[in-house]
Design a protein around this nucleic acid. Structure first.
Lengths: 243, 243
DNA sequence: CGCGATTTTGAAAGATCTCAACATCTGTGG
DNA sequence: CCACAGATGTTGAGATCTTTCAAAATCGCG
């Protein structure tokens, strides 16, 4: 499949203007970025970057969800990150990455050719500072995930996962009931949580049987009892997931 | 135990001068740092920072090894990072951290009071840039560790751990035999690898029985067959551990 | 030399995985 | 609009790996 290149639009109207790598940039800096950016789209399931492949460009995720994953020699795979809108792909000073990046849903990227971007970073402290902040945020998330992968039971992993989705869907609301769009298959969830797809299915159905969640089709999961999910997550009671 | 504050010495003679947060700094910038730095020492086992405690200072690790760890409500703990000389503790813009930092060996820190350091960072792109690089490097390591925690068997975890120690001890040498100082107990290794201490002991003795490693006292482990360790690590054959 | 901490070892329990069969969903084409 | 086929999800049973619990051995410091 080819990579459609969308017509550019103004950074000032960009949905991730205030959170992406450019968030600290002033008008002049934004114009510099505007000159080297290109939009690209990927369909759900497409690979965006292959591990080890030379990176022609770095990018901000504008819409959709993408996953970072690593694979052992015998094929076992583990997701090591989820990219959401405003997250950044690629790192200045390194011409390849050590994981695959795959579109989980349809995805739009705002791409910057790597060389000119790196030059711009060197001259623009606002960019460097934001890249640092984004990296530190990802690090916090990665460390929470290490605790999950290393020490949580299957049930706790599923509870944590669902709670994370719920928090992401409604960061403010405190309702104990909500409907979550579910774009990942059991297999993808398993690779995210370090489980097998059968265990994911069993644990989801266990929560369903207990009335904590409900689902019938494959597109949505309804959370009926968010406090119960949190209680099953193993995390400290006074402390939310993530950073 | 109190925190001895060492007499300052010149940054220019610092053993981590070229790799720490200050590595890109010029003489003028170094002088600014020199004014706000203090040395502190911790004995093996001491807690350097408690999770959630307000951070009075940030620091570079000068000598020794420290561990970052997270704990679930019922006491299960997972190490989420190992700090080696030149690694940085604390993050600009956040006044607390979400993990405990413990000295694994005796440790010396080069500490900067947080507020003046943050001011200096804002005015010094060299510092920001280095902090970004350090964060990205930690992120790479964290992602390798996520693959280990989520997908590797106990045997693969131990092999990966030993191989990492060997690489760290001699980044250049390719000898298949070497002696590694071992400062961690079985329990600490277990918390690092997401195992129990009994499983760590069994797997270490299994490798010993196969002649891959040797050990008699608790201070050293001799690696006799590094290629065998690598083969048991589950990683791609053409690809080393870490970033 | 002796005691507490650490490590080793064994046996049984338990959780998750593996393998297999079957069910359900979804989109396609008639 | 329905039937079909492939993909995805569910469920069961047994295997396997790691943990748990317990006891004994060893180390290392005073």
């Amino acid at each position: 499949m080819t990579l459609p290149i969308l017509r550019d639009f103004q950074c000032s109207h960009c949905p991730i203007r205030h959170r992406a790598v450019c968030s600290h940039c002033d008008t002049g800096e934004l114009n510099m970025l505007e000159n080297i950016k290109t939009y690209r789209s990927f369909s759900a399931g497409e690979v965006i970057f292959w591990r080890g492949e030379p990176l022609g460009y770095v990018a901000s995720l504008v819409t959709g969800v993408a996953a970072l994953s690593k694979t052992l020699e015998d094929g076992r795979t583990q997701m090591v990150g989820l990219l959401l809108p405003s997250d950044f792909i690629g790192r200045p000073g390194r011409d390849k990455i050590d994981f695959d990046v795959t579109a989980t849903t349809d995805v739009t990227l705002c791409c910057f050719d790597r060389k000119p971007f790196e030059t711009l970073v060197r001259e623009t402290p606002h960019l460097t500072q934001r890249l640092m902040e984004l990296a530190l945020d990802e690090l916090d998330v990665a460390r929470d995930w290490m605790l999950l992968l290393g020490r949580k039971t299957a049930r706790e992993k599923i509870a944590t996962f669902l709670e994370m989705l719920a928090r992401r869907a409604e960061p403010d609301e405190k309702r104990s009931s909500m409907i979550l769009p579910m774009s990942m298959t059991r297999d993808q969830i398993a690779n995210f949580l370090g489980l097998t797809l059968e265990t994911v299915s069993r644990q989801l159905n266990a929560f369903k049987k207990q009335g904590v969640i409900e689902f019938s089709d494959r597109k949505y999961i309804a959370v009926k009892d968010l406090p119960a999910l949190h209680a099953a997550s193993g995390d400290d009671s006074d402390q939310g997931f993530g950073s």
